[in-house]
Design a binder for these strands. Structure first.
Lengths: 353, 353
DNA sequence: CTGAAAGCGCTTACAG
DNA sequence: CTGAAAGCGCTTACAG
């Protein structure tokens, strides 16, 4: 029977109607056993009749818990990770938060009033009880300060310089080694080019390292080369300029993500080269794009949504102090074979829903 | 000089250090002219030295403003709109909110405690000062109640049944008519099939209506047919089953979005038919996918990010009551010609960044 | 113009 | 065990 929202119904209103104190109402609604079942029932009924909804501000002020967590997107990240990654993260965080009636707020960087970043303000103002950091550049001092502050924070990805931080990720080195080895072992690649992501991000550094390890393990490091990209489609397109591709040149390109691989495919097309016939191509992430291109891009599937779910669970544990020591979770990735590397064409694969 | 966040610095701490009352500090920091410049400077300096950050809960409780807005995703929408649309919306809302130091919280539906939807609770609890609703099914009573409650709400899309709501959108009827007319006039299509979205959503109804108007205007309604889809890739794939395509059959398919068009392209491939040579195909939305497929999908580009930015501005106006009457903004869409309809192949088009 | 109290709506620590 | 006060940290309405 929630009537017009003009005037708010408070605990006091419910208390007066029932003839008890606001404290009693508060306790009854939070399920305290101090209130008799009969009274509690009457209180709950009356609260429902009046359309009582607790004030989140009053509750937060009194209990010192906002009931919200923040998903932080450092500004350095805006162009580094595309929409897809962030959406998977948000989906995972939201579903975990929903289960606990926790609000999710997203904090991209904004005005730096008083020298604090937007997200440091969010934390210090207790707007959120904790934060999930989607990704940050190596040595980002803002993130370091945030983790060092002791506030509940969970980092997504790998942060070797922040060993005391709680983080969730996967092994990019091993994953990149795996996909590179696939090209070498399954498709006979011998002259491989790697197009990196921005090297101020650990992900890019790790994927490069995996590439190098695979070529070294195969004894073909002499035929391996590195070109620097920044995870953008354009940088994948640009990175191939000036390299001898196909024929006696590079026979395979390992892109550090799918967006760059797609840019690379377009460069090959401009050059009149075919993938995989002239040059084998692989990407990384498998957020969707790699499935839709022609040829489909062989990639490393990365469980971004699960990553975020686990991060949220870890964060809740830090917030309610059921977890105190920092943890590290490592998730499994998997190779997705498509045509761009030379694997046989897949049957039609539709998104499940 | 922000020291460890363990104990919070309050107005009182700043006040004691400076030797004034908390009220004076509050006023100084909010720029009130009541406090002399000299004192205000000392207060600001001390606040910065101590690392003072106002408690958002206390501020919200006292001022009756949370300083946050909610982006609501009705559960009916989860499978209806994909990630891309939502990300564009979030980007637009965030950038507008950042400019005003407003927090953005996302509210998908969760537990229905006390018979209220998650977002109704968000509004009634004053966790957010207003809400942007990304899309809702026709006749969604939750949305109707929310708009009827008088709380600041802006709807994205078209809601003919809610004429008193403030909304921002574009003309789906006209847009769909435009892209259908393109097939008829530029490519000589005469037997057209339309695959709709879920018809409990106005967008799907409107796009169907645009298709029908275009075929009627061309006097070829006898050759026009309707198949029902639900905006999912699979439904686009499935919708084409049982229709005679190419040759003497349908020479063009108008999909109500790009995901379905992509599913449709895969069906054509399975059938051994080519687009555009055997069947011309067009989609709708242009959120990214349509640019990456082969052939590229001719589509209607829809300004989702701008939509969200404008919605946020409208919402701010409703919240601070600088706007009281409901408004309706209509944005411009545009036809993006790619190969799937028979237009010439584009040069390489890379994402700008 | 300025100082200091009242009070936003809760929850919890305390007194009885 | 239960009742009713204190107080979270602010801002604003009021008294002087």
């Amino acid at each position: 029977m929630a009537r017009g929202a003009a005037q708010t119904v408070t605990l006091k209103d419910v208390a007066e109607r029932v003839g008890v104190t606001p404290a009693a109402v508060s306790m009854a609604l939070s399920g305290s056993r101090r209130i008799s079942t009969a009274t509690a029932d009457r209180i709950r009924q009356t609260a429902a009749d009046l359309g009582y909804v607790p004030s989140s501000a009053a509750k937060a002020l009194r209990s010192r818990r906002s009931g919200a967590i923040a998903v932080i997107v450092p500004n350095s990240t805006q162009h580094v990770f595309g929409h897809s990654y962030f959406m998977h993260v948000l989906t995972g965080v939201s579903s975990a938060a929903n289960e606990r009636d926790v609000q999710v707020l997203i904090s991209t960087s904004a005005s730096e009033a008083s020298g604090l970043t937007a997200y440091e303000r969010v934390m210090r103002s207790r707007t959120a009880d904790g934060a999930i950091v989607t990704s940050a550049a190596i040595g980002d001092t803002n993130i370091e300060r945030l983790t060092a502050s002791g506030l509940p924070v969970v980092l997504l990805g790998n942060y070797p310089d922040l060993p005391t931080a709680t983080s969730v990720g996967w092994d990019d080195v091993q994953a990149s080694q795996m996909v590179t080895a696939h090209l070498i072992e399954e498709h006979g690649a011998r002259r491989l080019l790697h197009v990196t992501g921005p090297l101020d991000h650990q992900t890019a550094v790790d994927r490069r390292e995996g590439f190098l390890r695979a070529t070294r393990a195969a004894g073909i490091e002499a035929g391996a080369a590195i070109a620097e990209g920044d995870f953008s489609e354009r940088s994948g397109f640009d990175a191939l300029a000036g390299y001898d591709l196909g024929g006696a040149g590079f026979d395979a390109v390992v892109f550090a993500n799918d967006d760059m691989a797609f840019g690379g495919l377009q460069r090959l097309r401009v050059l009149g080269l075919r993938a995989p016939e002239d040059v084998a191509v692989v990407g990384f992430d498998d957020f969707g794009l790699s499935r839709t291109t022609d040829p489909g891009i062989t990639s490393v599937h990365v469980p971004a949504e699960e990553l975020a779910r686990i991060a949220a669970e870890r964060l809740f544990a830090l917030i309610d102090e059921s977890q105190t020591a920092p943890t590290r979770d490592d998730l499994q990735v998997s190779l997705v074979r498509r045509r761009s590397c030379g694997c046989p064409e897949q049957d039609v694969v539709l998104l499940s829903d």
